[in-house]
Simulated assay, not measured.
Amino acid sequence: MLELVGGALWAMLPAYVPNNAAVLAGGGRPIDGGRELGGRRLLGDGKTWRGTAVGTAVGVALAMLLNYVTPATEGVLGIVLPTFPPLAALGLALGAMLGDIGASFLKRRSGRERGASFPGLDQLDFVVGALLLALLLAPDWTLETFSLARVAVVLVVTPLLHVVTNVIAYAIGVKNEPW
């Protein structure tokens, strides 16, 4: 059980951190440049080039750090953990950012403003983006690393982690809403 849950969470770490890093580094030019579609912003001010770049870079850097500490961590935990080829790391990190950007687009189309809650989409948008781009860029690694059981763990645990990290970010003042 530890190998299943631990391996699933370890494999997703490069996708879990980019959006948090983007919030901390945010600001700058919005990706949509203020453009609208149907009287609503395409994405909104919360999706910036700087946040996307920093979030992606932090996710890739974390994957490389995890590669470095994997042998020692495996020794401590007594389980086998995945390592990250560069394209898999990029797919997970950039895919997480693109999934979140796609969710912002859908939120604007549904009439929701920046920061508005969209249950389900808010918790899993980045997971879908990360897994899809990783599958596109590193298909063999993704299929080997993300068994159906690991995907199931990710789909169950991620919404819980999402709620906890957002409440913490709200409490320390880096998010305006606790969701």
Rank of each mutant, 00 (worst) to 15 (best):
A134G: 10
A134K: 02
L135E: 10
L135S: 14
L135D: 07
L136Y: 13
L136N: 06
L136E: 06
L136R: 04
L137T: 08
L137C: 08
L137Y: 07
A138E: 15
A138T: 12
A138Q: 12
P139I: 03
D140A: 09
D140S: 07
D140V: 05
D140G: 00
D140P: 00
D140M: 00
W141L: 06
W141Y: 11
W141P: 02
T142I: 01
T142M: 00
T142R: 03
L143C: 00
L143V: 05
L143W: 03
L143F: 06
T145V: 15
T145H: 10
T145K: 10
F146A: 00
F146H: 03
S147F: 04
S147T: 15
S147A: 08
S147K: 00
L148V: 14
L148C: 08
A149G: 09
A149E: 15
A149K: 12
A149N: 11
R150Y: 05
R150N: 02
R150S: 03
V151D: 02
A152Q: 10
A152S: 14
A152L: 14
V153F: 03
V153W: 05
V154R: 00
V154I: 15
V154G: 03
L155S: 09
L155K: 09
L155R: 04
V156W: 01
V157E: 11
V157R: 09
T158S: 13
T158Y: 06
T158P: 01
P159F: 05
P159E: 04
P159C: 01
P159V: 01
L160N: 03
L160D: 04
L160K: 05
L161R: 01
L161H: 06
L161T: 05
H162N: 09
H162I: 06
V163F: 12
V164R: 07
V164N: 07
V164L: 15
T165C: 01
T165G: 04
T165N: 02
T165A: 08
T165K: 10
N166F: 10
N166W: 09
V167I: 15
V167E: 14
V167Q: 15
V167H: 14
I168K: 10
I168V: 15
I168A: 15
I168T: 12
A169D: 04
A169G: 14
A169R: 03
Y170K: 07
Y170G: 05
Y170H: 14
Y170L: 03
Y170A: 04
A171Q: 13
A171R: 15
A171W: 11
A171V: 04
I172C: 03
I172A: 01
I172G: 03
G173H: 12
G173S: 12
G173F: 11
V174P: 05
V174N: 09
V174T: 12
V174Q: 08
V174K: 10
